[in-house]
Design a protein around this nucleic acid. Structure first.
Lengths: 217, 217
DNA sequence: CCGATCCATGACGAACCGTCAACTTTTGAC
DNA sequence: GTCAAAAGTTGACGGTTCGTCATGGATCGG
């Protein structure tokens, strides 16, 4: 295709210098935003705080994002886009309802405990208030889950239940339990996934009893 | 004008005029805030928007609330303080796990469908983003639920499970299902509560099948 | 080497923030 | 009824952030 004669730049420079610095700047701003949001909380940070944490000028921010809200969305969307294929792949390996549920919870909890920074629900700086924002790509992940449930119903793997409500139940448990898991000293993703799976498969009476030391890890 | 001679003002004037207008102003500001938040969404409203919707001057706002965040908190806390005693009372009537779960979901869903305005999760104005904020009194309600579960375990009504996780699961399902219920045309609090209760009692296989028209109401 | 294009820069006007001195109303004492 | 102290309201003010835009420097294609 193009060139050549001699070797093209080793890599990554398939893009011109222009495209390169643009990508760098965007990355620098996102990085700074992650840090500032984590430190000050969403409500307290300003666009100026973010840009001050980079080497760029204030006007430059607006070449990349429209507002504080949009960059926050970009950060969350990025995380959602990273996790969704993993969830979907695990679910599609499932042959039974139990495998489907187990895979969903285990994958989710493992990712969020491993990469806490990205998934920790943003907490308002000082006070006890908690906040959660679902961006478009996160919500698209919810819809994917519902589609997978519906497809399971169509194939006879799931009983013909209300897929919308079941999706909501799974999402609600996943996010709310995440909040509790991250608050604990021993973050045991597997134990949490076992708890949630048992609840969804057999109800409260099937839940592992606290204090038991199950054979597993 | 005020006359007197005869009966004291029929009621409510047990308080001096000062206390009276203070209560009125606070109420007027809260009322205006509810309206503005509902119209513009939390992120887009300013303290000035709220005070403009009253007859008061801008400085007066700060005699009652420190910030936009604090008045939002006050609104949510008010709702939480109203709903918590009802939830607790219903739960305490329960003699079995099933009654406990059923009462929790049914009471919650009935209240939120009846008084949608107060409980609808605040949505960011135009876009698809969703947001939820838990204020201290809401969180205190979570803790109450956990205490009730723990007390149930102590009395032998509940099996000895992880009360923290179960509380999180119930809360997560309640809030996330609320979001779906309010999006539907026919808001059936009972059907939703039956779904959630069946899930928690027997797991997915016990869920009512979609399309069934159960005998009950 | 040159003109065209792209983009970073930082200054600017507008909007909002939270405060505060001045003013009005209420209260309680005489 | 009168008056001084206390409480509370008012809107203007300095300070900060917002989003824009004219300017200028760097990159690109030729």
């Amino acid at each position: 295709m193009d060139t050549t004669l001699i070797a093209p730049k080793p890599r990554a420079a398939a893009l011109g210098k222009r495209e390169q610095t643009k990508a760098q700047n965007r990355q620098m701003i996102l990085e700074a935003a992650r840090g500032v949001f984590a430190e000050l909380g969403y409500g307290a940070t300003t666009v100026r705080d973010i840009i001050r944490a980079t080497t760029l000028a204030s006007g430059t921010f607006y070449n990349y994002f429209k507002s504080k809200e949009e960059i926050y969305q970009a950060i969350r969307d990025e995380a959602a886009l990273a996790i969704r294929p993993q969830l979907r792949a695990e679910r599609q390996k499932a042959a039974t309802v139990e495998e489907f549920i187990q895979a969903t919870f285990r994958t989710f909890f493992e990712i969020v405990t491993r990469d806490e920074v990205n998934f920790r629900t943003i907490r308002h700086s000082a006070d006890a208030t908690r906040m959660r924002m679902d961006t478009p790509e996160v919500i698209a992940g919810f819809e994917e889950l519902r589609e997978d449930i519906e497809s399971g119903i169509a194939r006879g793997v799931f009983p013909p239940i209300d897929a919308d409500y079941l999706m909501a139940a799974i999402v609600g448990v996943a996010f709310e339990m995440t909040e509790r898991i991250l608050r604990r000293e021993n973050r045991d993703a597997k134990a949490a996934a076992d708890f949630a799976t048992a609840l969804f498969m057999g109800g409260i009476r099937a839940l592992p009893h606290a204090g038991e030391t199950p054979g597993g890890a």
